[in-house]
Amino acid sequence: MSDAAQAIQRLIEIMARLRDPKDGCPWDQEQDFASIAPYAIEEAYEVADTIARQDWAALPDELGDLLLQVAYHARMAEEAGWFDFATVATMIGDKMIRRHPHVFGAAPLRPGQWEDGKAEERLTRQENGTLAGIPLGLPALLRARKLSARAARVGFDWATATEVADKVDEEIAELKAELGSGDRARIADELGDVLFTLATLARKLDLDPEDCLRQANAKFTRRFTAVEQDLATQGRTLPDATLAEMEAGWQAVKRRERQIP
Rank of each mutant, 00 (worst) to 15 (best):
V88T: 06
L138E: 11
K167G: 00
G81C: 08
P101S: 03
M96E: 14
L136Q: 12
D169V: 06
V164I: 11
V103K: 14
R110S: 01
E78H: 12
K146G: 08
V168Q: 03
L123V: 03
Y72G: 08
F83C: 09
I97S: 12
G129Y: 09
L138A: 13
G129R: 11
T160H: 08
R122Y: 04
R75Q: 15
A86P: 02
H102C: 01
G155Y: 01
E170H: 02
H73A: 15
G155S: 00
D166L: 12
N128C: 02
A119G: 06
E163L: 09
I92D: 03
L147V: 15
D157T: 09
P139Y: 14
L109F: 11
F104N: 08
H102T: 00
A173Q: 03
R75V: 13
Q113H: 08
P135H: 14
D169W: 03
T90Y: 10
K118T: 03
M76Y: 15
S148C: 10
A80S: 14
A151H: 07
A74G: 11
L147T: 11
W82C: 11
E171K: 03
A165Y: 10
L147N: 09
E174R: 02
S148H: 09
V168C: 11
M96C: 10
A173M: 02
Y72T: 15
R125Q: 10
T160I: 07
Q113T: 00
A80Q: 15
E171C: 04
L136G: 13
A107W: 02
V88Y: 07
G117P: 03
T124D: 05
E170P: 00
D157Y: 00
K118S: 01
E127M: 07
M76L: 15
K167S: 05
R99Q: 14
R99Y: 12
F104R: 09
E121F: 05
V164E: 04
P108C: 03
A106W: 00
S148I: 07
T160C: 06
A144C: 10
H100C: 08
G155D: 01
F104E: 08
E171I: 00
G117T: 04
I134C: 05
E174A: 01
F83A: 10
A74I: 11
S148N: 08
L123C: 00
A159T: 01
P108D: 01
F104G: 04
I92L: 13
R122W: 01
P139S: 12
V164N: 03
I92Q: 14
A165P: 04
A151V: 05
R150M: 06
P111V: 01
A132Y: 08
I134N: 05
R98I: 04
F156Y: 14
D157E: 09
Q126H: 05
D169Y: 03
R143L: 07
E170K: 07
R99C: 04
W158R: 08
G81I: 04
V103A: 09
R75W: 13
G129D: 05
G129I: 07
E121I: 09
R110A: 01
L109V: 01
A149L: 06
G133S: 08
R99D: 13
V168N: 05
R98S: 15
R75M: 14
A161R: 01
I172R: 02
E120R: 09
H102W: 10
L142K: 13
I92K: 07
R110E: 10
D166H: 13
R153D: 09
L131H: 12
R98K: 15
G117A: 07
L141E: 11
I172N: 00
G112H: 05
A106F: 00
D94H: 15
D157L: 02
V88H: 04
